[in-house]
Design a protein around this nucleic acid. Structure first.
Lengths: 203, 203
DNA sequence: GTCTATAAGTGGATAGAC
DNA sequence: GTCTATCCACTTATAGAC
């Protein structure tokens, strides 16, 4: 299974690979259930190397969350700029942001680890970071995106619904359960395909 | 710390105590991070007894989720009946359901374990149960509550937002962070107090 | 009905070689 | 820069006494 003797590459580059692998593994299994060995295998290196590179599993997850938060903001900013260029109204802009959001399910490296992190409020170390990321996202939507307080809240609500549909793997029922299909169709709009494909890719 | 020699009570009653303790422990730490020993201590008995009573940690969690799903439906039905008696319109009925929903944070035995379960879609054993509970809740809102497909979707979205606010423990920032406060106020409406008190009780 | 003792397994982290 | 070997703590589950 495991590839012995991974090729020798710069630490910075290896770091990126591990972060990417970790984002997927943590996103799928959650912080507690994921093991550093699963991350290592996904990255094609040994378990101790993962720990050595980041100091601890906890620190690795912290970085994953940090990155995911930044990436999300980045994508939002790009979508906002695009919407502004096209002179979209507030309504269209919001939908535009929504589609950009759903596109992020692809790869599973942003939305899923973020959602997993939102369940760690109780953690003494990760909790504070999680809350700060959450609040920053809210402020970004409210101020930078110009959705306003209620608009940001609404956007967040639909985002959380989508996240939950993903983490419960409801797409697995799409073909068998009409209610699941209906809910997915309504929650994802024209982007259902993206979600279904992402789920299929993971399975 | 641990109370040795718990008093001898009927199995059925003990079962309830364990389920209640488990709902809180699982709700706070999540399935993977929670230990059967933490459940045992919360219930005031020994760890092996917890396992013996339910066969395994996995089965215990399954029952917790099952119960939480049923309890939620029960509360919805009561709220629907009440709304119908009072002849409330669709808008008011939905808000009435929303308030009944938030009241469930009290005790932490329903919303939190349910939310935690929604992150386990990937689990081969618990995943299917989680999806079935999710879909049943959706159908209950759509048909029994009469919210219709889109109404149920919207209700679910705000529910998931509230769940996420709770699991990330955003209430901890209520007094220090204006943005967190604003978001909580908007998401919970007149029921913020309930949420803040529940968070304080847990801490 | 409930406990103590403990087996068996898992996983994060450290040491040190190459 | 990366691995192998390994330690140690923790956790679930079982056995059997009371």
């Amino acid at each position: 299974m495991s590839e012995h003797k991974a090729e020798r590459i710069p630490a910075a580059e290896r770091r990126e690979q591990i972060l990417e692998a970790a984002a997927r593994v943590f996103g799928e299994r959650g912080y507690a259930a994921a093991t550093t060995d699963q991350v290592a295998q996904a990255a094609g290196i040994s378990q101790p190397y993962v720990v050595r590179m980041f100091g601890s599993k906890e620190k690795l997850f912290g970085e994953v969350v940090e990155r995911a938060g930044l990436r999300l903001q980045e994508v939002f900013r790009a979508a906002i700029a695009d919407a502004n260029e096209r002179g979209l109204g507030i309504r269209e802009k919001r939908d535009h942001l929504g589609r950009a959001y759903i596109d992020l399910v692809d790869g599973g490296g942003v939305l899923l680890p973020l959602m997993q992190s939102f369940l760690l409020g109780h953690d003494p170390v990760l909790g504070p970071k999680v809350r700060s990321v959450f609040v920053e996202i809210y402020q970004g939507l409210r101020d930078e995106a110009g959705l306003g307080a209620e608009g940001a809240r609404d956007f967040l609500a639909y985002g959380m619904l989508i996240n939950t549909l993903l983490t419960s793997d409801l797409p697995a029922l799409y073909d068998e359960d009409p209610a699941a299909r209906e809910l997915l169709d309504m929650a994802c709009g024209s982007k259902v395909r993206v979600v279904l494909d992402a789920a299929k890719a993971r399975a």
